[in-house]
Amino acid sequence: MRDKVVEIRNLTKSFGELDVLMGVDLDLYNGENLAVLGKSGSGKSVLIKIMVGLLSQDEGSCRVLGKEVVDLNAKQLNALRLKIGFSFQASALYDSMTVKENLEFPLVRNVKGVTAPEKKRLVEEVLDGVGLLKTLNQMPSELSGGQRKRIGIARTLILKPEIMLYDEPTAGLDPITCVEINNLINQVNQEYRTSSIIITHDLTCAKTTGDRVAILLDGKFSAQGKFEDVFSLPDERIKSFYDYNFINI
């Protein structure tokens, strides 16, 4: 049995009177890609934001790399965050900085004594890894949606994370770019040996990238397992999740 890098038990989270997560249990194993499927507003993004301490749970436990996130002080939390790459839904590139400055941002702040040639090499390496070396001096506003996603992923890879969290990586992209992003997620998993959680409502993305899928319905995981196994379960809620017959993978 592989080691667990994320272990979530009985996690609950509410916003005012709205219960979003109601007793969630989830494990992520070392080296695995886990696709979390769910409708919009089902709490998928909330779940991964709790993992990096952007939100805190109401009850339950969330252990990441063996550490209970909610118990960490600011310094410990930052140390943990450096081991986690977070790819945001809208890429979250810093508008006022060039691609190069965006990539250097986490590096210069968190790696002491990095020389200028080393910085240049690392930036070019990750940028080349996502196939966008020519965009080095461009501003985020000059990039397409797919390019922004790739740069956002490259920015997280520069610190060589152990865990990657992707928030809707294919949302708002055309089908060809979606395939490219899905391939990039698999490529990152293999080259950087990361464990990943891919939050999505795109079944193609879930099937292509996920070693395992988990379906979040009504604040709980209603099914977890191999893609084919999950969607062959006799649960009407899962069957109606999307009209599965229209998906042609």
Binding site: L54, F88, R109
Partner: peptide, 20 residues
């Protein structure tokens, strides 16, 4: 406007998760 747009496009969250 600048900080507001950074907030709504999750750029502030991105800074936080990169330990800044």
């Amino acid at each position: 406007a600048e900080i507001g747009s950074m907030k709504v496009t999750e750029q502030i969250d991105a800074m936080e998760v990169s330990a800044t």
